Amino acid sequence: MIELKTPAEIERMHVAGRFVAEVLAEVGRLADVGVNLLDLEHHARGMIKDRGAESCYWDYAPSFGKGPFRNVICLSVNDAVLHGLPHDYTLRDGDVLTADLAVGIDGWAADSARTVVVGNAAEEDLRIIRATEEALEAAIEVARPGNRLGDLSAAIFAVAQEYGYPVNTEFGGHGIGRTMHEDPHVSNKGRAGRGLTLRPGLTLALEPWLARTTDRIVYDADGWTIRSADGSRTAHSEHTIAITEDAPLVLTRRAAERPPSAAQSTVERAR
């Protein structure tokens, strides 16, 4: 069941979204060589507690997970891309780190993810991160009333194709609002002009994620962490957005974040 939100409800989601953006910005700032993943988890946990927010991950127990999730943030390193279980791992120079966070404030949720490189970055790692960022922005751009859900999926897939990256369709975006996961599912691959018609009040978490050379995934023994099947490095970008009468509203945009420009896109694809 899809629930359209009122402008007042979207603003309440925006409150949660701003906080999610703040935490992810702080985690990205703290992620450095020699920092342990558990330190980042505990820092995020403290920020959530101080704000009086509620983690959407704590005690989360979907069918694909192994027992309830007992952390407040997903931290995935290198070939890990989704649902990374924070554990005793110290970040090294050149590691690729994805942080994914969803919280609720006063009964409304927001969800976002970003990938950063720790220390010195390899060009190929920056390239796949840029691909997910551009794919996300391409989907946001077409998230307008009258367009279809398939237009979002097609936009994500088109960017992945331009970069030459395969696309997995087992996990993708989703509706969000009173809970972290609502209808509809938003695949990262689809056909334009198909699917649900977008209407003002629809709120979605769009999340393109890519592995460099495979669309297959494997699970760690922890039952949560998802990795590329061939060990190739990965990236993941996600924002919670709202469809409005005018332009799409990004509820989790970080203060210093700027969407990739067309000129940057051309340069990156040429590399």
Results as ranks from 00 to 15, higher is better:
6 T>C: 05
9 E>L: 07
9 E>V: 06
9 E>G: 01
14 H>W: 08
15 V>C: 02
16 A>P: 00
16 A>S: 05
20 V>L: 04
23 V>N: 02
24 L>V: 04
24 L>I: 03
25 A>E: 12
27 V>S: 02
28 G>A: 03
34 G>D: 03
35 V>R: 03
39 D>Y: 13
41 E>D: 10
41 E>Q: 15
42 H>Y: 15
43 H>W: 15
44 A>R: 04
46 G>H: 13
48 I>A: 01
48 I>T: 02
49 K>A: 14
50 D>E: 14
51 R>K: 13
52 G>D: 05
54 E>A: 04
57 Y>G: 00
57 Y>S: 03
63 S>P: 05
64 F>Q: 08
65 G>T: 13
65 G>D: 09
71 N>W: 14
75 L>C: 06
77 V>W: 07
78 N>G: 10
79 D>N: 10
79 D>L: 02
85 L>F: 15
87 H>N: 11
96 V>S: 04
96 V>R: 04
100 D>M: 12
107 G>S: 02
108 W>Y: 15
113 A>L: 05
113 A>R: 00
114 R>D: 11
114 R>L: 14
115 T>P: 06
119 G>D: 07
121 A>C: 03
125 D>F: 13
125 D>W: 12
126 L>W: 11
126 L>D: 08
129 I>E: 08
131 A>Q: 04
139 A>T: 02
140 I>T: 02
143 A>G: 01
144 R>S: 03
145 P>M: 09
150 G>L: 09
150 G>S: 05
152 L>H: 01
157 F>I: 08
160 A>K: 07
163 Y>D: 09
163 Y>M: 12
163 Y>T: 06
164 G>P: 00
173 G>F: 14
174 H>I: 08
175 G>L: 09
179 T>P: 00
180 M>L: 08
180 M>S: 01
183 D>M: 14
185 H>V: 13
186 V>T: 09
189 K>T: 09
190 G>D: 10
193 G>P: 04
193 G>K: 10
194 R>H: 13
194 R>V: 14
204 L>H: 02
205 A>P: 00
207 E>M: 15
208 P>Y: 08
209 W>H: 12
212 R>W: 14
213 T>M: 11
215 D>E: 15
215 D>W: 15
217 I>S: 03
220 D>F: 10
220 D>H: 14
222 D>M: 05
227 R>D: 05
229 A>Q: 09
230 D>S: 07
233 R>C: 07
242 A>Y: 03
248 P>M: 08
248 P>K: 04
251 L>Y: 02
252 T>S: 02
255 A>D: 10
257 E>V: 04
259 P>E: 12
260 P>S: 08
262 A>K: 09
262 A>H: 07
267 V>A: 08
